[in-house]
Computed example of a mutant assay.
Amino acid sequence: MTNNFHMGTNYLLKVITGKWKVSIICALGLKDYRYLELLKYENDVNHTKISKKVLTEQLNQLEEDGIVTKKSYGTIPPKVVYSLTPIGQELSKHLINLNFLGENLAQVNQANISFDINAQQVKNLHKEEQDKN
């Protein structure tokens, strides 16, 4: 059976829908992370804490959808590193721009909204990481 979507954007929104998925994609756009490093990073930049269960679920969903890849090293203790696939890297760049658009829309709508991390901070983090490489 074929799933029908009105537009490609509708499919994309299905893939990235989830409280933490956008944040996970943006974090992995900075660098590859081991699981606990990613959990710590997410909990440091967000006011609400992400649980291990939810992080695991959302990483697995992103992996199934071809956005994230997981590499196991077969060592003891186990070492697993999460990174973005090429399409995930492209998506991360677009999500950074959408952060700005979302903040502008909130301002236009005069919405009483606060953000854990603003778009400029995200962009600066990505620039700093690129400058390191």
Results as ranks from 00 to 15, higher is better:
residue 117 I to E: 08
residue 89 Q to C: 03
residue 95 L to T: 05
residue 70 K to G: 04
residue 78 P to H: 15
residue 31 K to M: 11
residue 99 N to L: 13
residue 21 K to Y: 12
residue 37 E to A: 12
residue 119 A to D: 09
residue 72 S to V: 08
residue 30 L to H: 13
residue 1 M to T: 07
residue 49 K to Q: 13
residue 42 E to F: 02
residue 48 T to V: 14
residue 92 S to M: 03
residue 17 T to S: 15
residue 125 L to W: 13
residue 29 G to K: 11
residue 81 V to Y: 01
residue 126 H to A: 10
residue 129 E to Y: 04
residue 118 N to G: 12
residue 39 L to E: 09
residue 42 E to L: 15
residue 11 Y to D: 03
residue 33 Y to A: 07
residue 52 K to R: 07
residue 87 I to H: 05
residue 76 I to R: 12
residue 88 G to N: 01
residue 40 K to T: 11
residue 21 K to Q: 13
residue 91 L to F: 06
residue 131 D to R: 08
residue 74 G to D: 14
residue 11 Y to G: 03
residue 60 N to H: 11
residue 5 F to G: 12
residue 52 K to D: 09
residue 85 T to D: 06
residue 66 G to N: 01
residue 50 I to S: 00
residue 14 K to V: 07
residue 76 I to Y: 14
residue 82 Y to C: 10
residue 97 N to H: 10
residue 91 L to K: 01
residue 100 F to V: 12
residue 79 K to G: 11
residue 130 Q to V: 00
residue 82 Y to Q: 10
residue 101 L to D: 00
residue 36 L to T: 13
residue 68 V to R: 04
residue 4 N to Q: 11
residue 25 I to W: 03
residue 91 L to E: 05
residue 28 L to Y: 03
residue 112 N to K: 15
residue 108 V to C: 00
residue 22 V to Y: 08
residue 90 E to H: 03
residue 65 D to W: 04
residue 61 Q to C: 06
residue 110 Q to F: 08
residue 11 Y to M: 11
residue 78 P to T: 15
residue 69 T to M: 07
residue 7 M to V: 05
residue 54 V to W: 00
residue 64 E to P: 00
residue 120 Q to H: 13
residue 53 K to A: 09
residue 100 F to K: 02
residue 114 S to L: 13
residue 61 Q to I: 15
residue 24 I to W: 08
residue 98 L to A: 02
residue 67 I to R: 01
residue 25 I to F: 06
residue 108 V to M: 06
residue 74 G to V: 09
residue 7 M to H: 14
residue 124 N to Y: 09
residue 31 K to G: 01
residue 56 T to P: 06
residue 131 D to G: 00
residue 88 G to R: 01
residue 94 H to S: 12
residue 115 F to Q: 11
residue 32 D to P: 05
residue 91 L to S: 04
residue 51 S to M: 08
residue 99 N to A: 02
residue 126 H to W: 09
residue 88 G to V: 09
residue 122 V to H: 05
residue 25 I to M: 12
residue 25 I to C: 14
residue 47 H to W: 04
residue 8 G to P: 04
